[in-house]
Structures are given as structure tokens and as C-alpha cells.
């Protein structure tokens, strides 16, 4: 069934976007990425002498996976804009996963700084994929300033708490005219399937796979979950009923 994900005019066959953080080593990461079937994967920008060379870019190129730089670690709009511009220069892509978080304990997006950065980056010609709160009003505003997607969190980054406010996610997907990507908080396959059933166009996750006991197997699980959830969403679930309804004919 041909059902591509389309972001800013670019088609992807996989609806799973992955991160590269948290993997024990590049070999584990490679097997997990291949098993997940992802075609778009995030990287972070860091000082050359602080992080050392990880070889992650070479790995993604070899696997034919598109690189999506993020602005992880940025606290202000100005920092995020500069980081995005540096990523564009370094990686020759105008796509950016925009993250502007408020504090280290929650890693929740700072909505004021986020919206400001999104607006500036769109004006500067970026394809902006913002990591946002599960706030339908903020999602609408991000769309209005020209973001290519909106990417609400299910729960805080790295918590694995799943989707804490499914109704908000449904409110966002029900009126968005850009793809909604559930970003952050996924713990296991059922969380990813739920995101898709709620009408999300894709799921972005990292920790759930890279820190799983068997990252390769969890990558495969997430691929299946996203595909299953998408199919269920398109198929249309049955209405919930209070009383039983026999599925066999009466005697």
C-alpha cells in the first residue's frame, strides 16, 4: 500500500524518525537503525574537541539515511538559531529539528523561545521541525509561522512514560494541516502504535530503542508498531460500546 510520509514536499516510506543518542556504540546503533527501517535520523551539534569524532555522519551516509540536525542543548532562541545555521553550514541541509528547552530537569520546551526561534528560522529559509509541548494552541501557532511539522511530546525526553495526554495529541492531529510527529516519551511499541492511532503522521524516538536491552529487536518492534498503528488509524476503529455485542449469530 503506497502511503508515504510527506514533509516539506519530500517523501519518506518510513514513518519512524529516529535519534542516534544513547547507543552503546556505532555497531549497535547501525543494527538498530537498519532494523527500524528509518530514513531520517537526528544528530546533535557539538564542539569538535569536546565530543570527539563519533563517525555518526559516515554511518548515516553509508546506510542512505537522511541527516536531521537538532538544536539540543539550546535554551534561548538566539542560541538555537545560531546552532541551526551552523548545522546548515556543516551538514548542507536546511532541515532542522528545533529544540529550545527550558531546564535540565524536565527538558520541556520553552514555548516563548521556541516560537520566536521557529519564526526566525522559517524566515531564514529553514525547513523547521519543532519539538513542542503537547499544547494544541502552541502547535497551531508553530504551524502558522510556517513550520513544516509540529512535533508534540508524549512525555518528557527519555522518561519512557508514553503519551500522558492522548486527548491533547488528538486535538493537535485533528486540526493540523502539517504532519504531526509524536516526539519524546515513547517507552515501548504500544506507545508508538497509540501515537499513530491518534492520528500522528510519524513517530520520533531514540532512547526507547538505543537504551533497550536489545536495541536491534526494539528497532524492529517500533517499525512494526508504527506501521500497525498507521494501518489501524486509516482502517477506522470500531466505536466503543458499554454493553457486549455478540459477534456470532444467535442460536
Amino acid at each position: 500500500m503506497d502511503d508515504p510520509l510527506i514533509i516539506a514536499g519530500r517523501e519518506f516510506r518510513s514513518r519512524l524518525i529516529t535519534g542516534t543518542g544513547g547507543a552503546a556504540n556505532l555497531s549497535v546503533l547501525e543494527r538498530a537503525l537498519v532494523a527500524s527501517g528509518t530514513e531520517l535520523t537526528t544528530v546533535a551539534m557539538r564542539r569538535v574537541d569536546a565530543a570527539g569524532q563519533t563517525g555518526v555522519l559516515e554511518l548515516l551516509r553509508r546506510l542512505g539515511i537522511e541527516v536531521l540536525p537538532n538544536t539540543a542543548g539550546c535554551r534561548t532562541s538566539a542560541e538555537a538559531v545560531l546552532t541551526a545555521q551552523l548545522a546548515r553550514e556543516a551538514l548542507e541541509t536546511n532541515w532542522v529539528k528545533l529544540e529550545v528547552v527550558h531546564d535540565e530537569e524536565t527538558l520541556l520546551p520553552d514555548p516563548v523561545e521556541l516560537l520566536d526561534a521557529a519564526e526566525r528560522l522559517v524566515l531564514d529559509g529553514f525547513v523547521v521541525l519543532p519539538y513542542t509541548n503537547d499544547d494544541p494552541v502552541l502547535a497551531r501557532k508553530l504551524e502558522d509561522v510556517g513550520c513544516a511539522t509540529v512535533m508534540p511530546l508524549g512525555s518528557p525526553i527519555g522518561t519512557g512514560l508514553g503519551i500522558r495526554n492522548p486527548h491533547n495529541i488528538e486535538l493537535i492531529t485533528s486540526r493540523a494541516s502539517v504532519p504531526v510527529v509524536l516526539d519524546a516519551g515513547i517507552g515501548t511499541a504500544s506507545d508508538a502504535a497509540l501515537a499513530m492511532e491518534l492520528g500522528c503522521s510519524a513517530v520520533l524516538l531514540a532512547t526507547a530503542v538505543t537504551r533497550a536491552q536489545d536495541p536491534e529487536r526494539m528497532g524492529a518492534a517500533m517499525r512494526c508498531a508504527v506501521e500497525g498503528g498507521r494501518l489501524a488509524h486509516l482502517a477506522g476503529r470500531i466505536p466503543r460500546r458499554f454493553w457486549a455485542q455478540a459477534s456470532s449469530p444467535g442460536l
Binding site: T20, G21, A44, R46, A51, P69, L86, A90
Partner: peptide, 10 residues
């Protein structure tokens, strides 16, 4: 001067 490169993340 800041010299940056891509690393695993996100």
C-alpha cells in the same frame, strides 16, 4: 571561535 561537528544525539 566555536568549531562544531555532528555527534550522536536526539
Amino acid at each position: 571561535v566555536e568549531v562544531l561537528t555532528a555527534v550522536q544525539g536526539g
